[in-house]
């Protein structure tokens, strides 16, 4: 009942303060509503009290708390760690018997075996790749070396040929020169 009362008080104030005072409609409303509304309120109050009294007379209804109702809570974020399962024992679960320890050990061992095996496989593959790359590099070096040798040989042959040809020409020249002009010795520098 209390909130309705406060609301009426508020509305009274609002009615007094708000609106245009001199307007006809407000004055009319005031004059008409005030005498009618008061008895109405009283009636309502009395009815409410009666109802309450009747309720007391009846059997008291059981009031359920929120926890008892077990209603899923809406719009709430419950982290995984915070939510505790119902009807479960608190605390840690220890592993102290041999069988469970053995099973854990077997699992861990198998896992490690696999890891080591995969590591070895990987290492072997890498080794193979490295070997292949090394062989290829060696091959390339050899090819380059043989090419170099070939060119060297070619150059050597060329030089030999050219030296032979030069000698013939010179003799011809010298002969020709001897025939026409007195030979002038040319100055030359030779490297060993």
């Amino acid at each position: 009942m209390a909130p309705s009362r406060t609301s009426t008080v508020k509305s009274k104030h609002a009615a007094n303060k708000s609106g245009i005072r001199n307007s006809k409609t407000t004055s009319k409303a005031k004059s008409s509503s005030d005498p009618v509304s008061k008895p109405k309120k009283k009636e309502q109050q009395s009815k409410g009290v009666q109802k309450l009294k009747k309720g007391e007379g009846r059997k008291k209804r059981r009031v359920y708390t929120e926890k008892e109702l077990d209603i899923p809570q809406l719009n709430m974020i419950t982290p995984v760690g915070v939510e505790k399962p119902k009807g479960k024992k608190k605390g840690k679960v220890f592993v102290d018997d041999r069988e469970s320890m053995m099973t854990i050990l077997a699992m861990v061992n198998a896992d490690k075996e696999g890891q080591i095996e995969s590591k070895m496989m990987k290492a072997r593959q890498m080794e193979e790749i490295r070997e292949a790359r090394k062989a290829e590099a060696e091959k390339r070096v050899e090819i380059r070396k043989s090419k170099l040798d070939e060119t060297k040989e070619g150059l050597r042959k060329k030089r030999k040929r050219s030296t032979g040809a030069d000698g013939g020409e010179e003799s011809i020249k010298s002969e020709a020169a001897a025939g026409t002009k007195p030979l002038k010795k040319r100055k030359s520098v030779s490297f060993a």
Partner: peptide, 10 residues
């Protein structure tokens, strides 16, 4: 002093 839990054992 206590025994180890399962994740600890692992």
């Amino acid at each position: 002093m206590r025994p180890l839990t399962e994740p600890e054992t692992q």
